[in-house]
């Protein structure tokens, strides 16, 4: 036993005495290399991916509807065809569910510019298109809002100067981005009324700095994914032809 201990000691002393040459950093070189099609794919990796890819492809490539045009979230300054399509489709899909559960209608739907993740191209809309448009697993929620949250919401929409998509709300702002007029479901805003605003859970929890959803009167979770609502809507629609309209305008018009 003692002998072993001695050997350990010997080890330690030898290692500590053993001087390695000291290395100093003399040169740094940095660059970026493009991953291009001139690189040969490693077949072992590719064949590992193949079963996953094949399973996905079967689901993703099924056609849901036809798009008349190509639509992007940057098509308009205050509202866009693609944004309007998304919130209008969500209203149509979610309202019957909400009404059945609560007896109320969804007064308006609100998403953000950032919710629209990609473009819809002219031609066939597949499940893959919808996954790219809405890759997140967010669920639709309905929030009961009163004054002053409705005011904060309108301020947010005026001041962010972005085409944040909304349905059933109409906004007019002046050249200083100050609110001129607002209606919900065609009626002036009633300061005593509770409004049922549909959005998704990411925004409800303060995403994109939407701080006005909380605290609130109540929250209803529909357990209905935004993506699934869009897929269900598109399954019913043969063709989509959304338009930029007058739901959010600046006066005088440029």
């Amino acid at each position: 036993m003692r002998f072993t201990f001695l050997i350990y000691l010997l080890y330690i002393s030898l290692f500590t005495n053993c001087k390695q040459p000291e290395y100093h950093l003399t040169k740094i070189e940095g660059k970026q290399i493009g991953v291009t099609d001139s690189l040969k794919a490693i077949s072992e990796i590719d064949s590992f991916i193949q079963p996953y890819r094949a399973h996905l492809k079967k689901d993703m490539d099924s056609v849901l509807a036809y798009s008349v045009g190509t639509y992007s979230r940057d098509d308009g300054e205050f509202n866009t065809a693609i944004g309007n399509f998304m919130v209008d489709a969500v209203h149509e899909q979610a309202n019957p569910i909400f009404k059945r559960r609560t007896g109320h209608d969804i007064d308006m739907v609100l998403f953000t510019y950032g919710t629209v993740r990609t473009i819809i191209s002219k031609g066939d809309i597949t499940i893959r298109t919808v996954y790219e448009l809405m890759p997140f697993e967010n669920n639709i929620v309905v929030v009961a809002l009163k004054q002053p949250q409705i005011d904060s919401m309108l301020q947010y929409l005026c001041k962010t100067k972005k085409a944040n998509p909304f349905s059933k709300l109409k906004l007019t702002i002046d050249k200083n981005y100050d609110l001129v007029n607002a209606t919900i479901s065609g009626k002036p805003i009633d300061n005593n009324k509770t409004y049922y605003v549909a959005t998704h859970d990411y925004l409800y929890n303060g995403g994109d700095n939407m701080t006005f959803f909380q605290p609130n009167d109540s929250l209803y979770k529909l357990n209905y994914k935004v993506r699934n609502a869009l897929i269900d809507y598109l399954k019913k629609a043969d063709t989509i032809n959304p338009v930029m309209d007058d739901r959010y305008i600046q006066i005088p018009r440029k």
Binding site: Y23, L25, K31
Partner: peptide
């Protein structure tokens, strides 16, 4: 999106 790979080389000398 894996478009590029970064490469930094550090050279040491004794």
């Amino acid at each position: 999106h894996g478009i590029n790979l970064g490469r930094i080389d550090f050279y040491f000398d004794s």
